[in-house]
């Protein structure tokens, strides 16, 4: 294994606004690394710096051994990019879209195009207009295009937003196969469902990288205390009670129950007591494993 991305105190300011604030991390060959954050948290600015599209104000980055400020041409030839909003030409066929973008990358061997189409499972659909494809299949075509020049590093921006779990899973199996062959993948996303598919996940807020670890470790370690599902009626009154209970760091509505995050030391009896004293009817207080969303809201909320 070797280091594919090295970001060292990477910082970018736009006037008084610090879009990316001293971000440091590394990604190794074959790693699938997620980057999770709300709009404007600095995800895209980080990627633009890693691709050498904008210069860091401070700090430095190396991608595949190339300095992002000086070797940008050679660097970008080794990178692929795919976005949920990737512009496929709707009126063109699958084959026409593929050959058009292959031409842009200077790829014209027919064997390569066929191999790529076969990899994503679109053989037989060459003459289908892309407008007729469902979103899961469009995403696979977009992935084929992003990988047509065999990049060593793939950037994916919300690659599977809006698709169902089955289609998402098929897409990720393609990504895992690439990673197994040594392609490194950096995924930026809003979606917890998507972040779960990454080997490690970084959480961004206001330009800062707040945490970066495996999803399991984030859930086990990044919360201050514990997560609870609280079933109590009336719901809104119970919410108000929890919000006012010492040691409850966050309480929210979650369908037919409440989700609460508490500091260590707050136990089931303390929650029962607080709710009972306020006169609400408590059906159950269950300790639950925190979700990635709990972690995200605790860190970035």
């Amino acid at each position: 294994m070797s280091t594919v991305i090295l970001a060292d105190n990477l910082t970018r300011r736009f006037g008084d606004f610090t879009a990316v604030d001293h971000v440091s991390f590394e990604a190794q060959t074959g790693e699938v690394l997620g980057y999770l954050g709300p709009n404007g948290s600095g995800k895209t600015t980080t990627i633009r710096m890693l691709l050498g599209l904008i210069r860091p104000t401070e700090g430095r980055a190396e991608v595949m051994g190339f300095d992002v400020q000086h070797d940008t041409e050679r660097l970008r030839r080794q990178c692929g990019y795919m976005s949920q909003k990737f512009a496929l030409y709707d009126e063109l066929t699958v084959w026409e879209n593929l050959t058009f973008y292959a031409g842009v990358y200077g790829v014209n061997e027919r064997a390569r195009l066929n191999e790529t189409l076969k990899w994503v499972g679109l053989v037989g659909q060459e003459k289908t207009r892309t407008t007729a494809l469902s979103s899961g299949w469009r995403q696979r075509l977009a992935l084929a295009i992003a990988f047509i020049h065999r990049p060593r590093l793939l950037f994916l921006d919300e690659p599977t937003s809006g698709v169902d779990p089955t289609a998402r899973r098929m897409f990720w199996d393609l990504i895992y196969a690439l990673a197994e062959e040594g392609v490194t993948v950096l995924v930026t996303t809003h979606y917890m469902d998507e972040a779960e598919y990454c080997g490690r996940v970084g959480i961004m807020r206001a330009g800062k990288l707040l945490a970066m670890d495996t999803p399991s470790n984030l859930k086990a370690k990044a919360l201050p205390g514990r997560a609870w599902d609280v079933f109590a009626e009336p719901l809104l009154k119970s919410l108000a009670v929890l919000e006012a209970t010492p040691g409850v760091t966050r309480a929210g509505l979650s369908g037919d129950h409440l989700r609460a995050i508490t500091l260590p030391g707050v136990d089931v009896n303390a929650l029962h007591a607080a709710l009972g004293a306020a006169g609400v009817t408590v059906a159950a207080v269950d300790a639950v494993e925190p979700s990635l969303e709990d972690v995200f809201l605790a860190l970035a909320g």
């Binding site: 709009n39 937003s161 809104l236 979650s254 970035a300």
Partner: peptide
């Protein structure tokens, strides 16, 4: 769809409030 997680969280709190009333 396409909305960031903090906004989604806010949105759902509103929807649940609406029906809980």
């Amino acid at each position: 769809t396409g909305v960031d997680p903090l906004t989604r969280q806010d949105f759902w709190q509103l929807i649940i409030r609406l029906v809980s009333d």
